[in-house]
Design a protein around this nucleic acid. Structure first.
Lengths: 124, 124
DNA sequence: TCCATATTTCAGGAAATATGGAATTGTTTT
DNA sequence: AAAACAATTCCATATTTCCTGAAATATGGA
C-alpha cells in the first residue's frame, strides 16, 4: 500500500463519525452494508454532514457505494483495511523483526481462532 | 484502548512527517530511539516544526522522551501501537468474527515467523 | 407529470492544524 | 561566567477541516 494511500486512510479514520461509520459497516458485513440514511440515523448525524464524511471514506478507499432503488448503500472495503494494518505492522516488522511476532501473537490472542471450514478460505 | 485515544493516535499518524517519525523510531528500536536533532536531520525538517510534531506524537502516546545530556531522545511506544492495531482489528473481529481470522492470517503471512527461543516469550 | 423520498452539492463561517522566524530554556564546555 | 549547542516555546500566518442551511439531483410511485 502506498504511503499517500495510508495517509488518506488514517486521516479518514481520524474523525469520530467516520470511525463509527466504518465500524458500523464492518458489523453489517462486507456484503450487506447499509444505506446512507440508515447510517445517518444510527449515528444521529445530519444527512449532508454524513454525506461529506462518506465521500471522504470513499475517497480513501475504505468504503464503496452502490445505488439500490432510491437509496445508496455503503459497504466496507476490507482490502483497504487489511492494507492499512499491513503497512502499520511493517513499521515494526520491516524495521525490527523481533517485535513483529510477539505483537501479532498478542493481537491474535484477542481474537480466538474460529472454527472454519477449509473450503471457504478462498472467499475473496 | 479508549476510542478517544485511538482517534488521537490516528490523527497523530495522519501526517507525513509524523508517520515518518514513528517508522524511523521503530527502526531504531524501542530501547535505542533517536535524538530530536537526528530525527530532524534524517527527515530534513526544521527543528521547531519537528518539535511541534514530536509533541503531538507524545501527546498521543506514540512516543516517549528522555533527556540525555543536552539532547532529548525519543523512543517509540510499542504498547500504544499494539493498542491501536488491536482496536482496528476489533472493528472486524467484534462485529464479524468470520472476517477476523483470514485477515490476521494474511497479515501474518507478510511477516514470516521468526526463529525465536521459547524462553524469551515473556519479554514484556 | 407531479410529488415524496434519498442523497449530494454548494457556499459560508468557525475552529483546528501546519509552518516558520525569533526569542527562550536547559545543558555542556571552556 | 560566557559561549556554544540542543530543543522548545511563542507568535503570526496560511491552509485545511468541519459543520450547517439552502438548493440541486436522482429515483420511484401515484
Amino acid at each position: 500500500m502506498e504511503k499517500t494511500a495510508v495517509l488518506d486512510a488514517l486521516a479518514a479514520l481520524a474523525q469520530p463519525t467516520r470511525l463509527d461509520v466504518v465500524r458500523l459497516l464492518m458489523q453489517a458485513g462486507p456484503d450487506t452494508g447499509m444505506a446512507a440514511g440508515d447510517i445517518a440515523h444510527a449515528l444521529d448525524a445530519r444527512a449532508n454532514t454524513l454525506s461529506a464524511n462518506l465521500s471522504i471514506l470513499l475517497n480513501a478507499g475504505l468504503v464503496r457505494k452502490e445505488r439500490i432503488g432510491r437509496s445508496i448503500r455503503y459497504y466496507p472495503e476490507i482490502e483497504t483495511m487489511r492494507g492499512l494494518l499491513g503497512f502499520l505492522l511493517e513499521d515494526c516488522c520491516g524495521g525490527n523483526p523481533a517485535l513483529c511476532r510477539p505483537l501479532l501473537d498478542t493481537l491474535t490472542d484477542d481474537c480466538p481462532p474460529q472454527k472454519r471450514d477449509r473450503r471457504d478460505d478462498h472467499q475473496h
